Amino acid sequence: MEELDIVTLIVRHRVRAAQRPAYEKWLRRTTQIASTYPGHLGVNVMRDAEQFVCVLRFAGTAELQHWLDSSERRHLIEEVAPLLDEGDQTQVETNREFWFTPTNAQPALRWKQACITFLVILPLSLLVPLLWQPLFAKLPILGGYFVSNVLITLSIVLLVVYLFMPRVTALFAHWLSSH
């Protein structure tokens, strides 16, 4: 199995206050279009009073570059330019998770990070082993102490990183950013 070289595109837009509804409509259309590109792994949008931060993940640099160089994206950026106070601000990250620092502001307080992480991991640590039990019963080789713990831990980590943590941090973004 080939390991993915996941790359993250962070897009920051400062939207003119009167243009927020038009921008929201543009953003929904844009994220839907981006999701059709090969290698697209998901998008999260964080909003605050000052800006929108979109985090797009792609399976690799080539897939991200295909989206960045596309005529569709170029037209979308031209279309949104009049709605923005500043231009299209992009940043590419290849080795950094993007859970707790959605803007250039200070990172969330560690105790808040711990609370959110606990909130996500606790239910998974209770549920995931139960979901694996039928397979462990049918294939005892997978139910051994080491193998079962590797499978359960791997499942939890993948669910946290790719599914739950981006959504939960977006949901709690305001609380995480308030000090």
Rank of each mutant, 00 (worst) to 15 (best):
N149D: 11
F146N: 11
V128I: 15
W132P: 00
V92Q: 10
D85A: 12
E63V: 03
L124E: 02
A108M: 08
A22R: 07
F164V: 08
K138W: 15
A81Y: 01
S125F: 07
G144L: 07
L126P: 02
F52A: 05
E63L: 02
E97H: 15
Q51S: 05
E93G: 08
L109P: 01
P102V: 00
A81T: 14
P134E: 09
T61N: 14
Q32G: 15
P140F: 06
L124G: 01
L135G: 09
F98C: 09
P166F: 06
I152V: 14
R28N: 10
F100I: 04
L130S: 12
F98K: 05
D5Y: 05
I77Q: 06
W26N: 03
G39W: 06
L56E: 09
R14V: 10
L76S: 06
M165R: 01
H179T: 14
P38S: 12
H75E: 13
G143T: 08
A34T: 02
E86P: 00
F58C: 03
A114H: 15
F98V: 13
L4R: 12
P134K: 06
L76A: 13
Y37W: 12
L127W: 13
V161F: 15
V53R: 00
E79V: 04
R167F: 13
V120G: 00
A105F: 06
Q32Y: 15
G39S: 08
V45S: 02
M46T: 15
W99E: 01
W175I: 04
P82K: 09
A59P: 00
L4C: 12
C54E: 15
I152E: 01
A17T: 05
W175V: 04
S125E: 13
L127Q: 10
S177T: 07
L27S: 09
L83P: 04
Q106H: 10
R28H: 11
Y162N: 13
T8G: 03
S155L: 07
R110E: 10
L171V: 01
L76I: 02
L151V: 02
R57H: 10
L127S: 11
V80D: 00
T90V: 12
V92I: 14
P102L: 03
W132M: 05
Y145D: 11
K138F: 08
Q19F: 12
R29G: 13
L41N: 01
D85L: 13
I156N: 00
E86S: 13
H174V: 07
A34V: 02
V147I: 15
P38N: 13
A17G: 12
E63M: 09
L154A: 15
L83S: 07
A173Q: 06
G143W: 05
V7I: 13
L158S: 12
I152W: 07
P140C: 04
F58E: 02
A59K: 06
S178T: 15
I141G: 10
I156Y: 00
D48V: 01
F172H: 05
L176Y: 01
L135Q: 07
V15M: 03
N44R: 10
L176N: 03
L139P: 00
A62R: 12
